[in-house]
Design a protein around this nucleic acid. Sequence first.
DNA 1: AGCTCTTCCTGAAAGC
DNA 2: TGCTTTCAGGAAGAGC
Length: 277
Amino acid sequence: MPELPEAEVVARQLREHILGAIIKESWLGREDIVRQGLPSLPWYRGARIAGVERHGKSVALACERGGDTRYLVAELGMTGLLLFGPLRERYQKHTHLILTLDGGQVSDLRYWNPRRFGRLYLLDKPGLGQFVSRRFGCDPITVSREEFCALVRTRRGRLKPLLMHQQVIAGIGNIYANEILFRARLHPARQAHRVNEPALRRLYRVMQQVLAQAIKDGGSSVRDFFAPDGSEGRYKRRHLVYGKDGRRCPSGCGGTIRRLRGSDQRSSFYCPVCQRK
DNA sequence: AGCTCTTCCTGAAAGC
DNA sequence: TGCTTTCAGGAAGAGC
């Protein structure tokens, strides 16, 4: 499932392959996949893809036409993918949007999302600003240590939900939250404001390392994440706790990885020996 | 503020 | 084998 590293990989591939391309045609399989701005869809025909942004786990195409800029935001949700045309055979069903392109390296870009947790948004500039400020907190890649630590210190809730709270820290989901907390040796249910300074700095450093490495590795392909060109992410090989319940802790502490189902239905994977509360 | 619960949605896996 | 049930998960929103 796409989280920040996967969305970043998607954004980078889009920049590499379709920046500057012109949208010739748009095909929409179902209207309810566009949650906002559906009437403006015709505007995008003839627009040039002038930029690609990532916000949290979402990817935004900046489109220009006649001196005007509008955005196409794709929430990837759990199963959402942006794919280049050559993959069309494998992804017929559940393709909800196709942008036929001219002048890029690929013939089209399509949005594929079987579970439809995640929609599309067609927004003008103020609309995007509003969308971003309402939904996304700081970016864990670019946030400074001071800012991050100050933020965690003021929170009374549990550490893991905080890391995954998009309005506070945008882009971290279940996989990376688990991997980060294990490497920082912090229990998922630790109260954020009770984490001491050294541990807080460790958390920041580990968060940046994990995300940077995952981007370098093309993301984690669990279930079926693919980059737009069809390549799989390799970071899954580096997973130490996610989906590893019942296995020996890789730190050599002798503990066994446990899976804890939180009230939010999401699973926490952690080592009860390394990550004490 | 922060927690819990519900809803959205489908395909894979488990259960019978 | 073939049917039914369960489950997984991100995010928003309601209610407490």
